[in-house]
Amino acid sequence: MSTSKRTATGIVDPNSIPVLAAENVRKNYWLGKRAIPVLRGIDLRVYQGEMVALLGASGAGKSTLMHVLGLLDTPTDGQVLYDGKPAHSLSINQRAALRHRHTGFVFQFYHLIPELTALQNVVLARMMQISTLHYWRERRAVRAEAVLILTQFGLGERLSHRPSELSGGERQRVAIARALIAKPRIVLADEPTGNLDSHTADGVMELLFEINQTQQLAFLLVTHNEEIAARCHRMIRLKDGLVVG
């Protein structure tokens, strides 16, 4: 595990509580009665404002680690801490609520809901944890907020377009906007540019770096691109389920 505690602003605070931490996280999959270890004791910490790159070959356990860290999957052993508190011991509803307010996801294949427009996809993220009445009272504010984010991401003219009518870069920007509107503490981005051409990928990465700097938002970024990883505050290399550097 990297021991760096340099924040985005360059200030090292050894006493600060990490936004996200993994302590000796292990994960086995089962092939019949045989256990296949995918994560073999991962320790990592991500602090507020940090942009951490997670590198590794295919099959190294990057996506599994992201799912365990995002509370979508449970570790076989070890624990995941959100702001220093164990997360996997919570109930399923509490984990869902925590995931909603603490973590944003950006996927390689966007995972936008095809029947919804760009604006509706973003607004949906705000609807997840509030009641109908609550949403109805705040619907104008929520919509305005979603429009603002999409406009900032250069999608002001594409609000009413469905994902099928958007380019790959535009879809990923919508996915990023969706991850940010719930105001998470950390964004887990699983190869966000893996499905984009280099020019579009550059644009998306610039957007992520900009958000990191302006909003002091933590990022854990899975990537194969060494150049992108080099621009992050830290790099974590994963090999055969272990952190190797």
Binding site: G70, I92, N93, A96, A97, F107, H111, L124, M128
Partner: peptide, 16 residues
Amino acid sequence: TSDIGILTAMGGTPRG
């Protein structure tokens, strides 16, 4: 099925 995954990632529960 794809949408079910993203709904869960955004904070949805099985009951939801």
